[in-house]
């Protein structure tokens, strides 16, 4: 028989993984709900989801093509930028979604028990659908321009996995902090806008000069985006800077889990 013991507090590294597994169906259902609600309204709703990043894509491509002619490894600027934007769009939508996931489900959280971690996780899973759409568009454009996919494509899942960890990690931090301090809800968009400029989306990291490269890699998305571009286009193979990015991802993810875990059982009392 299922046995539960309830006491005050829990261990720092007790993330309740068994419980999480038991509730796995709810993860899919929450994800499905988000997607369904987003696309239920109208066909225009879907279009807007594409138009927004498309606009950014066009602006970024234009700026970095005409104003600062960066080295795209022989690929058209549009392709180069899109391959960088795929991971960034995913990351920023996970951070925003996961960061606000607890607060936007206040009602549910204060009335029913389930592992709270499912809420931010469902945002990470849901955003994968958008990522898939972008990757399909990217593939079509690749063929349109007459390129074959790079043989390094097999590394792509690894970088997507890193992007998930990075997005969830930052998202957990933000949602944990914004439960206590609503200020963090306003910090998120700011952080993401700043991040967009210090992340090599439309330019290769090598173009900033060696002096700054290490600093750039402290931003975990730098390694991930460079890596993804390398897997898709086969240009700019990762340097040792990638290791730094991976370490940062790991630190952010694990610390995010711990911080979230510490506050998880107090959510209903605070919110």
């Amino acid at each position: 028989m299922h046995k539960t013991v309830i006491t005050h507090g829990k261990a720092w590294f007790d993330f309740g993984l068994k419980e999480l597994y038991r509730y796995r169906e709810l993860l899919w259902i929450l994800t499905w709900r988000d997607l369904k609600v987003r696309y239920a309204q109208t066909i225009v709703g879907v279009l807007w989801a594409i138009i927004n990043p498309l606009f950014t894509l066009v602006v970024l491509t234009f700026v970095f093509k005409t104003v600062a002619d960066v080295d795209t490894g022989g690929y058209p600027h549009l392709l180069f930028t899109l391959s960088g934007m795929a991971a960034w769009t995913y990351f920023s939508s996970v951070v925003a979604g996961a960061g606000g996931s607890i607060i936007s489900s206040q009602q549910m959280v204060s009335k029913v028990y389930f592992p709270r971690l499912l809420l931010p996780l469902s945002k990470a899973v849901g955003a994968l659908v958008d990522l898939a759409v972008v990757l399909v568009i990217l593939t079509i454009m690749l063929f349109w321009y007459g390129f074959a996919p790079s043989s390094t494509l097999i590394y792509l899942p690894a970088f997507i996995f890193l992007a998930i960890l990075a997005g969830v990690g930052v998202g957990l931090w933000i949602s944990a902090m914004s439960i206590r301090f609503r200020d963090f809800m306003y910090v998120t968009p700011l952080l993401l806008r700043l991040g967009m400029f210090i992340t090599p989306i439309a330019y290769p990291v090598s173009s900033v000069g060696e002096k700054w490269e290490t600093l750039m890699y402290l931003n975990p998305m730098t390694g991930i985006i460079e890596g993804m571009r390398w897997s898709i286009l086969g240009i700019h193979p990762p340097t040792e800077g990638l290791t730094l990015s991976i370490i940062v991802v790991a630190v952010v993810f694990i610390s995010g889990l711990i911080v979230f875990n510490r506050i998880e059982r107090k959510i209903a009392d605070i919110i």
Binding site: M1, T4, V5, I6, M108, V112, R265, D269
Partner: peptide, 25 residues
């Protein structure tokens, strides 16, 4: 398990469902 006790202990033998309101979610 929505809220955490300050002290003390509860042992539950069996699967628990709580109905604190209808139509949650």
């Amino acid at each position: 398990r929505i809220s955490e006790p300050t002290s003390g202990k509860i042992t539950l033998n069996g699967r628990v469902s709580s109905l604190l309101e209808v139509g949650t979610g």
